[in-house]
C-alpha cells in the first residue's frame, strides 16, 4: 500500500510537471537578427503619445538597423508599474511619471547607476505641469489653489501613494502653500489637509481619477496633468475648461533603459535608441501634439499658443529632490498619512 501510494505520488508529480511544461511554453526568444521586441512600461497618461511614437520609431529603427521592431506597451499607475518591473516584468525601457519610481528600480540593481544623467534634461524628454480641469462655465469659480479649500468644492485627484501623477498634484499644492505661508510648515500642512479633506474619490491612477470626473460626473475640479486635461477637453468638447493656477510644479517624467533586462534579452541597442529618439524633432512634435511640453526649446516655442508659458513653476529640487520628498510626505507615517488620521 505504501509503495503504491509512493508510486502514485510520482505519477501525480509527473502529471503536474507536464502541466507546468505546457503552461510554460513561452520561453523568451533570444535576439533574432530580423526582429526585435521591446517592452515599454509606462504610466497612465502616455498611452496616446506612445501609440504615435511607436509608429515613427518602428520606421526609424528599420531604417538604421534593418530590423522589424515590435513595441509592446504597458500602462498603469507609475508606482505600480515600477513595482511590477522590480518583480520581474521584463521591461526593456521604462518611461514613468517620477524619478523616484525609476530610482526604486535602480535600487534593485536593475538599472545602472547614474541613469538620470544618461540623457538630456535629467532624462526627461518631455515635461508637463499640473492644472485644474473644471466644468463648463466654472460654476464654483475656481481660480487658484485657495479655492480648493472652500467647503463646498469637491475635488478629484488620485492617491499619491499609488499614482506618480498624484504626487506631482500634491507637490504642486505644497509649492503653492510654501509660497503663500512662506515656509510655515504647520500652516502648510493645514492647507494641504483642507484640500484633501475635499477629495471625493481617491483613485489609484491618474486615468481612474479622470474617468471619475469626466465620465461619472464626480466633483467640481480635477487636479490633473496638463496633457490629461487637454485630452479630456478634446474628447468632450465644450464641457470643460482648464484653469492654470498661479503656482504649479514642473513635472518631469523620467525615462531609462532597464539595463539588466535589456542585457538579458540582448536588446540594449534598440532600447537605447528607443529613448534617444524621443529627443528627435519628430518625436518632440508628437509629444507636443499630445500636450506634453517638449524639452526642445525650439519645438516648445512652435506650440506656445497651446502651453501657458507664464506659470510660475517650482521644481522638485526646491523641496530637496524626490528621495527627500518621498520620505517626508508619502512614506508610511508621513505627512500624507497624517492627513487621513
Amino acid at each position: 500500500m505504501k509503495r503504491r501510494i509512493r508510486r502514485v505520488m510520482t505519477i501525480g508529480i509527473a502529471l503536474m510537471g507536464i502541466m507546468m511544461m505546457t503552461a510554460c511554453g513561452n520561453i523568451v526568444d533570444a535576439e533574432n537578427s530580423s526582429k526585435v521586441e521591446l517592452i515599454n512600461v509606462s504610466y497612465d497618461p502616455t498611452r496616446e503619445f506612445f501609440e504615435s511614437y511607436n509608429k515613427i520609431f518602428t520606421k526609424h529603427w528599420k531604417k538604421i538597423s534593418g530590423q522589424d521592431a515590435t513595441i509592446i506597451q504597458s500602462h498603469g499607475g507609475s508606482g505600480k508599474q515600477a513595482l511590477e518591473v522590480v518583480n520581474g516584468l521584463e521591461a526593456d525601457v521604462v518611461t514613468l511619471a517620477l524619478e523616484y519610481d525609476i530610482d526604486a528600480i535602480e535600487n534593485e540593481g536593475m538599472i545602472d547607476e547614474g541613469w538620470i544623467d544618461e540623457y538630456d534634461n535629467d532624462s526627461s524628454p518631455y515635461t508637463s505641469t499640473i492644472v485644474f480641469l473644471v466644468r463648463k462655465g466654472n460654476p464654483k469659480g475656481i481660480k487658484d489653489w485657495d479655492d480648493l479649500t472652500e467647503k463646498n468644492v469637491g475635488i478629484i485627484t488620485p492617491n499619491p501613494k499609488t499614482s506618480g501623477g498624484a504626487r506631482w498634484n500634491y507637490m504642486a499644492a505644497w509649492a503653492y502653500a510654501d509660497e503663500k505661508y512662506s515656509g510655515d510648515e504647520d500652516k502648510m500642512k493645514d492647507f494641504i489637509s483642507k484640500i484633501y479633506g475635499n477629495v471625493l474619490v481617491l483613485d489609484s491612477g491618474a486615468r481612474g481619477a479622470t474617468t471619475s470626473f469626466v465620465v461619472n460626473g464626480q466633483g467640481d475640479v480635477l487636479i490633473a496633468w496638463e496633457n490629461e486635461a487637454y485630452l479630456s477637453m478634446q474628447d468632450y468638447p465644450g464641457e470643460f475648461e482648464i484653469v492654470t493656477p498661479s503656482v504649479s510644479i514642473l513635472a518631469q517624467p523620467s525615462v531609462a533603459v532597464v539595463d539588466s533586462v535589456a542585457r538579458y534579452k540582448g536588446t540594449e541597442k534598440a532600447a537605447a535608441e528607443y529613448i534617444n529618439y524621443l529627443y528627435s524633432d519628430e518625436a518632440q512634435r508628437i509629444a507636443a501634439d499630445n500636450y506634453f511640453r517638449p524639452s526642445n526649446e525650439d519645438v516648445l516655442k512652435e506650440y506656445s499658443d497651446i502651453f501657458d508659458l507664464n506659470v510660475k513653476m517650482a521644481t522638485i529640487n526646491d523641496f530637496g529632490g524626490w528621495k527627500e520628498v518621498q520620505k517626508k510626505h508619502f512614506s508610511e507615517g508621513g505627512i500624507f498619512d497624517s492627513i487621513y488620521s
Binding site: M20, A23, C24, G25, N26, I27, V28, E84, V86, N87, G88, L89, E90, E108, Y264
Partner: peptide, 21 residues
C-alpha cells in the same frame, strides 16, 4: 522575484509572472 525559485526559472528562460503561464 522574491521567490527562491526565481533564479532557476530565469536560468531556464521561463517566465511565469507577467507572462502567459
Amino acid at each position: 522575484k522574491q521567490s527562491a525559485l526565481y533564479p532557476y526559472l530565469q536560468k531556464m528562460h521561463i517566465s511565469v509572472v507577467f507572462a502567459v503561464p
